[in-house]
Simulated scan of single mutants.
Amino acid sequence: MKNCVFKANVDTVKWFKAAGIRAVKTMAQTAVAVIGTAAVVSSVDWKLVVSSAVVAGVVSLLTSVAGIPEVKEE
């Protein structure tokens, strides 16, 4: 688990910033994908869009625990 947040030589603040940016990007990509499945914007199920995006963001953060390439060990 390279660059894992639980390692003492990894800057936690940098890790949270990088993980947060990744999570927001993942959430946006998921929202666009779910919205894109609707034939018309008026038929978009916004609850599904939001819940899917939130789940994707949580999964992204949990995946980032194993390590983020942007955060180097010191």
Rank of each mutant, 00 (worst) to 15 (best):
N3A: 11
T30F: 00
Q29S: 09
D11F: 02
A18T: 03
L48F: 07
V24L: 12
K47S: 14
G36I: 08
K2R: 07
V55L: 08
A8P: 00
A18M: 02
S43D: 15
K47A: 15
K7I: 03
K14P: 00
F6E: 07
N9T: 10
M1V: 05
E74Y: 08
R22I: 01
S52N: 12
V54Y: 09
A23Y: 04
A28F: 11
D11T: 01
R22N: 12
V49L: 07
T30P: 00
R22G: 12
S52I: 01
G67D: 08
D11E: 05
M27A: 15
G57F: 05
A66E: 08
A56R: 01
V10D: 02
M1Y: 09
L62C: 14
S51I: 09
A66N: 08
T63Y: 12
V13A: 15
L61F: 14
S42F: 00
A23E: 04
S51F: 13
F16M: 10
L61E: 08
V71W: 11
V5F: 06
A53Y: 10
V54K: 05
S51K: 13
T37D: 13
V71N: 10
V41C: 09
I35M: 13
T26S: 11
V65I: 15
A18R: 01
Q29N: 11
R22F: 05
K25E: 13
P69K: 15
E73G: 13
M1A: 09
K47Y: 12
W15T: 02
L61W: 11
D11L: 01
T12D: 04
W15N: 02
Q29A: 09
V24S: 09
V58A: 15
E74Q: 08
L62Q: 14
I68G: 08
K7Q: 15
C4F: 02
V58P: 07
V65S: 06
S64R: 02
R22K: 11
S64C: 12
V13G: 12
K47P: 06
V34H: 03
M27C: 04
M27L: 02
K47W: 07
A53K: 04
C4K: 06
D45L: 02
V40P: 00
S51V: 11
V10K: 01
I35A: 14
T12R: 07
K17R: 09
F16V: 13
W46S: 11
V5Y: 05
V41R: 06
S52P: 05
P69F: 09
G57L: 05
S43H: 07
A56V: 01
C4W: 03
A39D: 14
A56F: 00
V50H: 05
A8H: 02
V10A: 04
G67S: 08
R22P: 00
C4A: 14
T37N: 11
V34S: 06
V24Y: 12
K14R: 13
T30Q: 10
L48S: 15
